[in-house]
Computed example of a mutant assay.
Amino acid sequence: MALAFNGARPSGALAGHADTGADIDISGLTKTYGDFTALRNVDLSMRPGEFVAVLGSSGSGKSTLLMALAGFIQPDSGSIRVRGREVLGDPANRRGFGVVFQNYALFPHMTVFENVSFPLRLRKIARSEVARRTEQVLETVKLGGYGDRPIAALSGGQRQRVALARAIVYEPQVLLMDEPLSALDKSLREEMQIEIRELHEKLHITTLYVTHDQREALTMADRIAVMSKGEIMQIDTPERIYREPSSEFVARFLGEAVVFSRGDAGRAFSNLPPAPAANLDLVMIRGEDFRLEPAAREPCSQTTATVAAVVFQGDSWLARLTTAGGLPFDVRIQRADSRRVASLTGGAEVTLYVRHEDIHFLRVDP
């Protein structure tokens, strides 16, 4: 999916070459602040042109990982190799990475053109080339004709585009983004998620994207790395990390998960499939995988529960239930079952079905 330009095509990222991005190999990265360990022996490899979202809550280490890769903090130990070359000894300005911060870090006294062209002028690029490449990248981020505008006259989404344009105008091999959409409202944030993903498909810059928003990570990334307490708990494709989490933490952090011990699940559900391994002592079912009717010609488990409450949430209903053994759990009733929702009144008993392929077994977190 190459990007078309009028006139001469530049070399590198803005030409849309599939090999533009650099491969990255992070190994054994550790960073401590006194008694607090921000990064604990982190390993992460990225393929050229890959988009990896680092997902975690506050204090998980995700921003520290980005800052270490950018060169803004020095880790205590470990290695960061870009295209096979160790870069830990390089200062941030020599790594040549594009960086987009949460607050955009734009220069308020400069126009849009001056902000975007700043990295090129800093590198003493010829004035005519600065103008050509700046106008070109403004068109790429849908800000053509905005060059003369002051930053104060822009909306939040437009400022985000300016920050993105400034980060890619000098055609970096690596793009680092630290929660760049967190200040936007929901609808604009979702719009920008798609735009950034489309831009990545055109430019093929290796991208590390830090976020605490699970839907954002699922929407944008080739792979997601879930972090907690300075460690990567799991890294995989969005679908696999959602459908096949490796631990209870990942299951609960990403999406809505109902988790029972294997013993409790065995008492609550009939026809429960066997665990594939002896050390998998938890049963996980996504809230949206419960059904009010059995699937045709597919093996299912079933459970009977008591309804505590049902809440309409627009695209679905959240039902709060209790198993016969007294264990509370939440399920999400989809629109396909909307005609049955009226019968789910408080105190009523309901039978729920789950396909065997939607039942997953997990290890207990250490």
Rank of each mutant, 00 (worst) to 15 (best):
Y104S: 10
L188P: 05
D19G: 02
L318A: 09
G263E: 15
L29V: 07
V82W: 02
A342H: 03
D25G: 06
P150W: 07
L138Y: 00
E288T: 03
I196W: 05
A70I: 08
M110A: 01
D148P: 00
Y209P: 01
E86C: 13
D19A: 08
A257N: 02
N103S: 15
L208A: 14
F249M: 05
Q334R: 15
I168G: 15
P180F: 15
A295N: 06
N6K: 05
G157W: 01
L321M: 14
P108R: 01
P75W: 02
N103H: 12
G156K: 10
Q234I: 09
Q74I: 14
L65W: 01
L44N: 08
S261P: 03
L362E: 03
R149Q: 13
S11R: 13
H17I: 03
V283F: 13
S57Y: 05
I24K: 02
M227H: 04
D330Q: 15
K142R: 14
G287N: 01
V137Q: 01
Q136A: 12
F118I: 04
D185N: 06
L3V: 11
A277G: 05
E50L: 07
T219C: 06
A126Q: 10
S228G: 01
P274T: 01
R291Q: 14
R291A: 15
T345W: 00
F113Y: 11
F97R: 07
H17W: 08
L318P: 00
N6A: 11
L176A: 12
F101W: 09
A68V: 13
L352H: 10
S79A: 06
A257D: 03
L321W: 14
P172W: 02
L44D: 12
Q334D: 14
E256T: 13
V130I: 11
R240H: 10
D358H: 09
R94E: 10
